[in-house]
Design a protein around this nucleic acid. Structure first.
Lengths: 126, 126
DNA sequence: TTATTGTTATACTATTTATATAACAAGCAA
DNA sequence: TTGCTTGTTATATAAATAGTATAACAATAA
C-alpha cells in the first residue's frame, strides 16, 4: 500500500486517496476483506494529515466500497451492491462526459472502443 | 435561453451554468454561432451575479465550446476540435466512472447499453 | 497495562465560491 | 457627440471547503 499523491494536482488530496483505493479495488490489487492502513499510518506514509485520510475512508464507506470498524480499522467491503441512486449518478456523470466527446466529434464507435479498452483493465486478471 | 439553476445543488452555480450550455450544444438546441445572453442578462434571469456567469463562459471558452468577443458578447463556437489532451482527460474521468460501475457489478454489456442510450440523445434530431 | 483503532473537538490558515459595486475601453446606434 | 451595451478588471466581503495541528476519548487487542 504505497499509493502516490501529487500535492500539485488539481484534485484534492482526499479525492486522490479515494480514487487510488477505488482503482485498487477495480483492478484487483485490493481484494474484498483486505485491511487498509490506519488513518495515522497512511497519513504518515503520504505526508498528509490523518483527517485527510479519514475523509477519504469515510467517503469510500459512504459509497459502499469500504467498511469501517471503529476499533479494528478500515477494510475493503466484502460485497458490493448497486442501487437505483448509483445508476442515476453514473448516468448523470456519464452524460456530461459523452456530451463533451460528442461535441468534439468523437463518434459513438470511438467512444465504445474507449470504454472497452478501459474496462479491460478491470475484467482482466491483475 | 431560460436554463434552470438549483441553489441547493451540490454542484457550484457556475458548474451548473457550464453544464447546461454544454448539454444545449450537445442536444442541438444551441447551434454553432448562436449568441449567448450577456453575462448581465443571464445573471439577471438566473438571479446570480454576473461574475458567476462570466466564470462559466470563461471556462466554456477555455474548453473550446464558446468564443468570446469583448464587445459583441459570447457565442457558441463555429467548429470544435479534439486534441490529445481532451482524450486524456476523457479517459481519466471515464476510468473513475467505469471503476465504480465495475466494482458494483455492472457488466460491460450493461455499461455499453447505458452509453448508447445517452449518446442517442445527442445524435438524434432535437 | 499498553498500544492501536476510528472518532470527536478545537483552532487555524488558505483557497474556492459567490456576491456587491464600481469603473474601464470599445463597439454601435441614435 | 451622446448614450447604451459588451466583456473585463479591480476591490471588498462573506461563507464554505480543504488541509493541517493537537489533544483527548472509548474500545479492542496483545
Amino acid at each position: 500500500m504505497i499509493l502516490q499523491i501529487d500535492v500539485n494536482s488539481e484534485k484534492s488530496l482526499y479525492t486522490q486517496i479515494y480514487e487510488s483505493i477505488l482503482l485498487g479495488i477495480a483492478t484487483g490489487s485490493l481484494v474484498p476483506g483486505a485491511s487498509l492502513p490506519s488513518v495515522r499510518q497512511l497519513g504518515g506514509e503520504l505526508g498528509v494529515n490523518l483527517h485527510t485520510v479519514n475523509k477519504a475512508y469515510r467517503l469510500l464507506a459512504q459509497d459502499g466500497f469500504v467498511v469501517i470498524n471503529k476499533k479494528k480499522g478500515a477494510f475493503i467491503a466484502m460485497d458490493f451492491s448497486i442501487d437505483e441512486k448509483d445508476i442515476e449518478e453514473l448516468r448523470e456523470s456519464m452524460t456530461i462526459l459523452l456530451a463533451k466527446a460528442h461535441i468534439k466529434g468523437l463518434s459513438l464507435a470511438e467512444t465504445q472502443t474507449l470504454v472497452q479498452s478501459i474496462a479491460q483493465d478491470f475484467t482482466k486478471e491483475a
